[in-house]
Design a protein around this nucleic acid. Sequence first.
DNA 1: GGGCAGGTCTAAG
DNA 2: CTTAGACCTGCC
Length: 275
Amino acid sequence: MIKIECNDFNLDESINCGQIFRFNKESDNSYTIPLSDRIINVKQENNILIVNSNDENNLEDIVKVLFDLDTDYNEFNKVLMETDNKLIPIIDKCKGFKIFRLNQFETIISYIISANNNVRNIKNSVDLLSIKYGEKVIWNSNEYYLFPTAHSLKSITIEELNSMKLGFRSKYVYEIINKTNSNEIDLNYIESIDTKEALEYLVKYKGIGLKVASCILLFGYGRYDVFPIDTWVKKTMTEFYGVNDMKSIQKIINEKYGKYSGIVIQYMFHYKRNK
DNA sequence: GGGCAGGTCTAAG
DNA sequence: CTTAGACCTGCC
């Protein structure tokens, strides 16, 4: 067990705002989360995170990266509230919220599945994939499953993906798996290019539109300057600025929130969805 | 039973 | 280049 000090972090809010699909809330109010290579269990007590894992190697650093603990969000929030006073009540509600840094391949697959889908179904499909193809971890005599790697999915068929309730998205996921395995899609390369290029790189693939690509870059690559505009953000923008069409919404977000757009949008998502 | 859920693809103008 | 329809699935 390790303890990590965390200031201005709210685990509950951050984990329940839809950015991560695979987690379990335990009876003691802790959360169990499968990461790329291990299972962690996290509980927050004030400004201390109590973290357990089946693998404590480098655990503190991994948790800090996962929850973006070393980034000072107060600084962003201050600038944003000065730029746009409409954000003040939203940011006030989102105190302690952090953008998670998730496994990149898992993020790509999960957000392709998210298109025109609901959270219950998304979680169900991602869990089915993990149980069937992910590495099993036994910890404290419980069974957990990591999200599968592209390599471990190399022989999956469209029919199997259909049986995991991916629906019309099966063919998209199938293509991403194969192109990742053939190195046509290079997840490390995306790290090296700027956000605009990375968006163009991702939207070439079927099933990845601007929204999904933005989520991949926000949660898989920590690019705060993307803006994944979904139904909730649209509703917030309509409420605040009376605009409906994507072009106007994009323009306002880009001009007002700039390099922090991704964070603002996540705040809006949280604000509107829980209203 | 129709509508909807963190959109995207496709065909048509 | 822009835009309306269709789309798997499960749950309300």
